[in-house]
Design a protein around this nucleic acid. Structure first.
Length: 906
RNA sequence: GCGGGGGUUGCCGAGCCAGGUUAAAGGUACCAGACUUAAGAUCUGGUUCCGUAGGGAUUCGGGGGUUCAAAUCCCCUCCCCCGCACCA
């Protein structure tokens, strides 16, 4: 009869049912609490193994803390704010085949009718469908989540909460408005994010600020754009592209000349009014006045000037720009080079650079770019200005001042450009637009930052370097736009037509977990700012509200005070510089000090088959499939043991398969051990000793979130020890020893593998749920046996290494332990000066003493080695397949030392 | 560039903070053997080099230093990954 030893499917189903029936993960407020949160999932698709990691780590911690006697709340909600869901539903509505087939595959995965995909043209249906599936996925993974507290970022109660939050921030003057440059699509009429840009995730697009400098030609201003305004003193001429189209535009009453393409973009940055096209050739015989000293400089043609970058007009500084230099050579024009920047007393010789990079003409675009970068880096980081108002400054320090100065003088304004040419996924160009009256949360306020720094200093952060990363982020964080024109979420309470941006609406939402059941029982229309003020600050008057609302408000306040603050927030490291930092800022601003976050930990990502997950590589595995194929315990165990929490995990199917075998062995071993008769042999108690130590040690590992260490030791190393005993002492003796710690062993692994642990725990007659048992603590009365075994083990190792080199199959093993005088000298060497011992010693003793000096910490724990050898003689004899002889012959003992008897093979 | 993290024995990956017990955990792969009709699974031994006695030599990106002793501490250098925002 073939019996499946380990049917994880039925085991998991059984315990899922029992946990749910007994509602064991729905804590009531009593005792010492532990609130653990992990960011809510964004529900626009099926979860894959990458998503599973953070929640798994969170759950392992939750389960461990629970076993340590804390009242653990591990809640979860769903994030639906922002644009992706909206974008997907729109694509489905528009019949986009790729999206439709993707969503059909999701439906199929979950066993639903793929033709239902058309329902996803309504965004809320996507959110509703996937949030339901995710609950199911999470339950299947064994996450000990309290689902009674779930909510979404799109539901009306939550909207009220976020409105309250924003009005509170506004009262504190932390919200302001201003103009702000954003990546934008003119054709689509929207700002665009990374996901909207073609290859935006792999080749990032950022906003670059050029300086548009005014050069006067009669009444017109040639608007030349530059990344190096510090070189303006060295301008020798203007370059226009003779083949490009230029036009005259009116900006605030001034007449500017820019390229036609530049105008198309510029009008999204400032009020620019098209006047007329101009003929570029009209300018080549004219002179322009540069704005600093009104020097007259020539306007020259150059084809390298790209009308689609900046303003399409370049002011030429040939002493510092390789492009300008080569362009002048190209058209054979001679001008007097003016050096503005020096490097350690001398300048960069631009002609030398040209030769060094082997540039022959304007067609060597790659070399030109390379040389430009080289010159720029040299001059920016090491250069000193030697001309003009800022003479004497380092370029690095002066650059921003120079820009500010020019803008103040009215001879320049910023012109924004994308860092590379980019288009949206729909094929439209990406430009930079200045959005007027954008709403911001002003994270730049210094007093606010200071409070956050103070908090960071006192928090429990893992890994340790998180502290530096946060402090760094706090330093550079500035105003953050907090509202967009489109997307799902909460409407900005201050102004219609804006939706609160999806990271800004999720900064203090963790507090809602503590009160949501109460909010749901209130009269919805009575939920207002006063109510939240009452719950969180206890300082609002609720006398006008109904009894039910008042009563629930009291309950909400009680639970808020009980559960908050969040003891640990765990998420992946990409959140450090955004979400987690906002999380800290907003808590600090809104809540009193004792409700501020206590701890944060960050974890790594998941890569798959050695590579980043991507659909094209075919290495994206849905969580559900993994669960069906391998079971949740295996998934969790793999994630826990493959990498430390803060490093990336590599999911490799071939390894996963091997882990499954190990898990099966673990299970069948414990199952067999249950029914074996008899007490453990005294000789085998070392295994019990090691196991007890492992379990004790694992507690410290879990505490430090060294989950991997705990798992490897408790699982792999333990299994290896058991196998060793099995080889040495046979199956029955091994099972007897295993039975001694089976229940505790299962419990110690319960945070990582909760299902199989429950099963084993109950199999061994455990009462209640393994998930709710205290983490095992055991006395170790068997330390002596372990030390004896270590001695035997090293004996076996020596035997092996000798048989290996000597290449023989010995029939007899003669063992001779160290002579008494060696032990005595060893003892004496601990208290007496080695030198005096040496003097008194004979040659043989000297030799031995020299060895002692070399190895100060002689590893011996067993004093009566003969007795131990006698005790294990039968085992050894069988195991090594030799006759064991314990010798007292002085000849044999020669090589022996305490802890390491001499052995002779024959 | 700034900030963070890395480069370890075939591969993945511990160790490094608290230097010696480390040829260096664990996993995986590979080789040989046991079992088996066979394969798989399982188990045993091995996988830097030398060695017919438990030993020795060389090794932890590269170079230098501190020390009786360095993968571990210090300095220099090369290379890789991540974040630098409006994106969830």
């Amino acid at each position: 009869m073939i019996r499946l030893p380990y049917d994880f499917n039925s085991i998991e189903e059984k315990w899922l049912r029992k946990w749910a029936e007994n509602k064991i993960f729905e804590p009531k407020p009593s005792g010492k609490k532990f609130l653990l949160t992990v960011p809510w999932p964004y529900c626009n698709g099926a979860l894959h193994i990458g998503h599973g990691r953070t929640y798994t780590i969170g759950d392992i911690v939750a389960r461990y803390k629970r076993m340590k006697g804390l009242n653990v709340l591990y809640p979860m909600g769903f994030h639906i704010s922002g644009t992706p869901i909206l974008a997907f539903s729109k694509k489905i509505e528009n019949g986009d085949q790729a999206t439709i087939s993707l969503y059909r595959s999701y439906l199929e995965l979950y066993g639903d009718d793929p033709s239902k995909v058309s329902e996803f043209s309504v965004p809320s249906n996507i959110a509703a469908y996937f949030s339901e599936r995710i609950i199911n996925d999470f339950m299947n993974m064994g996450f000990s989540i309290d689902w009674t507290r779930k909510f979404t970022s799109g539901e009306p109660i939550y909207n009220k909460f976020v409105e309250w939050q924003f009005r509170t921030l506004q009262k504190m003057k932390l919200i302001k408005r201003g103009d702000y440059p954003l990546l934008y699509s003119a054709e689509e009429g929207n700002p665009v994010g990374e996901d909207d840009i073609l290859e935006g995730d792999t080749d990032k697009v950022s906003i670059v600020q050029y300086t548009g400098v005014f050069f006067y030609v009669g009444k017109d201003i040639l608007l030349a754009s530059t990344l190096r305004p510090e070189t303006l003193d060295g301008v020798t001429n203007i370059f226009l592209n003779p083949e490009a189209h230029y036009c005259r535009v009116n900006i605030k009453g001034q007449s500017f000349i820019v390229s036609k393409r530049s105008y198309e973009k510029l009008k999204y940055q400032r009020d620019a009014e098209f006047v007329e096209d101009v003929d570029v050739s009209d300018y080549f015989h004219k002179k322009a006045k540069e704005p600093l000293y009104s020097r007259e400089i020539p306007i020259l043609p150059a084809k390298f000037v790209d009308p689609d970058i900046g303003t399409g007009i370049d002011y030429s500084v040939p002493a510092h720009s390789i492009w300008d230099h080569v362009a002048l050579l190209d058209i054979g024009e001679k001008v007097d080079y003016i050096r503005v920047i020096e490097l350690e007393g001398k300048g960069v010789d631009i002609e030398e650079i040209r030769k060094k990079f082997g540039i022959t003409g304007l067609d060597d675009r790659e070399k030109l770019s390379e040389a430009t970068k080289y010159v720029y880096e040299q001059e920016y980081y090491h250069g000193k200005i030697i001309k003009g108002k800022f003479s004497g400054y380092n370029v690095k320090d002066a650059k921003d001042k120079i820009i500010g100065d020019m803008i103040e003088m009215g001879i320049a304004f910023p012109v924004y450009e994308t860092s590379r040419k980019a288009e949206t996924r729909e094929g439209n160009p990406v430009i930079v637009a200045v959005i007027k009256n954008q709403w911001f949360i002003d994270y730049s306020i210094e007093e606010w930052k200071e409070k956050v720094r103070d908090l960071v200093e006192t928090m429990e952060l893992r890994p340790d370097n998180l502290k530096n990363q946060f402090l760094q982020t706090v330093d550079w964080i500035r105003e953050r736009p907090c509202a967009r024109r489109r997307g799902l979420g909460t409407e900005l309470p201050m102004e219609k037509g804006w939706v609160i941006e999806s990271l800004s609406d999720s900064t203090i939402y963790t507090v809602v977990y503590t009160i949501i059941p109460f909010l749901r029982r209130m009269k919805f229309e009575e939920i207002d700012d006063d109510l939240f003020d009452y719950i969180f600050f206890g300082n609002a008057d609720l006398s006008g509200k109904s009894d039910v609302t008042k009563r629930e408000a009291e309950g909400a306040r009680r639970e808020f005070l009980y559960w908050y603050p969040v003891d640990l927030r765990h998420t992946s490291y990409p959140h450090i510089s955004n979400h987690l930092t906002f999380y800290l800022f907003n808590h600090v601003a809104i809540f009193p000090r004792n409700e501020w976050p206590v701890g944060i930990s960050t974890g790594g990502m998941v890569i798959s088959e050695g590579q980043k997950m991507s659909k094209s590589k075919g290495n994206v595995y849905p969580l559900l499939t993994i669960k069906r194929k391998y079971g949740a315990d295996l998934f969790r165990m793999y994630l826990a043991s493959n990498a430390d929490v803060w490093y990336d995990v590599d999911w490799r199917t071939s390894e996963v398969e091997n882990y499954l075998k190990k898990l099966e062995r673990f299970y069948s071993l414990l199952e067999e051990a249950r029914s074996v008769e008899g007490e453990p042999d005294e000789r085998d108690l070392w295994l019990v000793s090691r196991m007890i130590d492992r379990i004790l040690k694992s507690s410290a590992s879990y505490d430090a979130m060294k989950i991997r260490d705990a798992t490897i030791d408790l699982f792999f190393n333990a299994l290896n020890d058991i196998r060793e005993l099995e080889n040495f002492a046979g199956k029955v003796r091994t099972l007897r020893a295993v039975r001694k710690f089976a229940k505790e062993w299962a419990l110690s692994l319960s945070p990582v593998m909760p299902f199989v642990s429950e099963e084993i725990y109950s199999m061994y007659g455990g009462k209640g749920f393994a998930s709710l048992q205290p983490y095992p603590v055991m006395e170790n009365p068997y330390k002596k046996h372990e030390e004896e075994w270590n001695f035997v083990e090293s004996l076996v190792e020596d035997f092996r290494s000798i048989t290996k080199v000597s290449n023989m199959k010995p029939r007899r093993l003669t063992i001779s332990t160290a002579e008494e005088w060696k032990w005595k000298l060893l003892e004496e060497s601990k208290t007496r000066d080695i030198r005096s011992l040496m003097k008194a010693a004979d040659p043989e003793q000297r030799e031995y003493l020299a060895k002692l000096v070399k190895r100060r910490d002689f590893p011996y724990h067993v004093r009566d080695e003969d007795a131990v050898i006698k005790k294990y003689a039968d085992d050894l004899s069988r195991y090594l397949n030799v006759e064991i002889i314990l010798s007292k012959e002085p000849e044999h003992a020669k090589k022996s030392v305490p802890g390491r008897p001499a052995i002779i093979l024959e």
